[in-house]
Design a protein around this nucleic acid. Structure first.
Lengths: 206, 206
DNA sequence: AAATATATGGACCACTGGTCAAGTTTGTCC
DNA sequence: GGACAAACTTGACCAGTGGTCCATATATTT
């Protein structure tokens, strides 16, 4: 039983081809233009498909951007949950957090306008009515991770809240623009200062 | 001397009346609806004026939201630059920062969707081409203040960057939604933990 | 080859922020 | 008071958006 579960038939070959074309076109446009200039219609045109197809595949503008981000984040997620230290398990919480944020900063820097694009999509989305950022699975996983590490190092603080705050940093325009010009090490250093202040000398260790 | 400088003639009485009507209408709508549902046209209708008038008075949707925020922030700005401690001068930098962020949290909580509305306006603005958040004078003043206090307490860190990060927190949706439901003390506590970690026990003192 | 499930494209919709020329109101000066 | 210019108001209009729909085309299965 259950050899081929028919609940989800595989995507048709042409559909899969188009999905890739759309993803790659969006990627390319985002690399060259600010998010508000990358409309669904332009993405469709660049991918050589109709606008309707994009909505068919991704549901909404937001869906497209989210998929793009998930693609990039999948490998990273594995690295911080089961990879080698200091990112993965094995190191102390402060060390892991610093490594995590350095990696996030680098990821964001490599991916140019993507973070901004997701924010833009969330905010301009008309149909699904402003779903909260928390419902983004990538964000959720990151938050859970940061939250756990903070709680481990400092059981006395509001880890949930602080995790949101630290992650939210990436959505700041002044930060994002520096990221775009390659200053991710500066961001990583600032993260390190904050994290070490919170977990480092202050309370946990000895 | 300089009794009546003619460089800027006073606003006409009807214009001033309409400006107030528009401001109050926007305020009221934002209290009841999420920012993306508060279009310029709706504001105009609620204020009993034509859409063109809103643009005439405020230049753009962003201009309107910014003016709304400036109104609220003016008094607060005076409090933290020249008022009594712990907000104003007289207390140590850590203490002042904690007070500042508690006040900001409270201000944001009292003003519901305003912060979100400004973000929304910035991102959906079409004409002026996505001016950076840094050009908002209110944001600028806040950043300068936070920056100076951080630098005072911890000359070794990247105060400019960290100030952006701490302030950016307010623009997070998960944070903002909690703020809206009145949990500003929770946010203030988290700020205090971060600030005390950075300035408090860690490095500066003895 | 026939049958069927799936994918496609682009006209279409409601709505947005923003513009503008034409008409109206106000303040001022005699 | 009346006249006049400057300031103000207006709503039709524009370009552009995200999203929907369905007749048509294509891939897959039998």
């Amino acid at each position: 039983m259950g050899k081929n579960v028919p609940m989800e038939r595989r995507e048709r070959a042409d559909a899969a081809r188009n999905r890739q074309a759309i993803l790659r076109a969006a990627e390319e446009l985002l690399r060259r233009h600010p998010p508000e200039q990358v409309s669904v219609e332009r993405v469709a045109a660049a991918a050589g498909v109709g606008k309707g197809t994009v909505f068919h595949r991704f549901g909404s503008r937001t869906g497209l951007m989210l998929e793009l981000m998930s693609e990039r984040a999948r490998e990273f997620e594995q690295a911080f949950t089961e990879g080698p230290p200091p990112l993965g398990p094995g190191a102390g919480p402060a060390e892991r957090l610093v490594a995590f944020f350095a990696a996030v900063a680098e990821l964001a820097a490599r991916n140019g306008n993507l973070v901004g694009a997701i924010e833009h999509a969330r905010v301009t989305s008309r149909s699904h009515g402003e779903q909260p950022r928390e419902s983004n699975p990538v964000y959720l996983a990151w938050h859970r991770h940061v939250c756990a590490l903070i709680a481990e190092g400092r059981p006395d603080v509001d880890a949930d809240q602080i995790a949101h705050m630290l992650l939210g940093t990436l959505h700041m325009e002044p930060i994002a623009s520096r990221l775009r010009s390659g200053e991710h090490e500066r961001l990583a250093a600032a993260f390190a200062d904050l994290v070490n202040g919170l977990l480092g000398a202050g309370a946990a260790g000895g």
